[in-house]
Amino acid sequence: MPELSIDGQPFRFAQGTTVAAALMSSGDRCSRTSVSGQRRAPLCGMGICQECRVSIDGLRRLACQTLCRDGMRVETQP
């Protein structure tokens, strides 16, 4: 099974899984922290709300619009 990492933790996924779906089974399921300090998680699942911003291999991406790839490095924003 292919594998990626979320904040350093390994995660195995089936082909076709989005990074947003992967986040649901990791840590506190959140993607980022808002300016006012609230933890935020994917919401709309369709690229509109921008709540699912994470860093993927060093670049800011929407988790719900990105498919998991083997070796991907996903970092949620503290």
């Binding site: 921008q50 911003r53 670049l59 800011r60 991406r61 929407l62």
Partner: peptide, 13 residues
């Protein structure tokens, strides 16, 4: 043209 790094950043709105 001025800030080449912008290309790797995400526009929110």
């Amino acid at each position: 043209d001025f800030l080449p790094g912008l290309g790797d950043m995400t526009g929110l709105r």
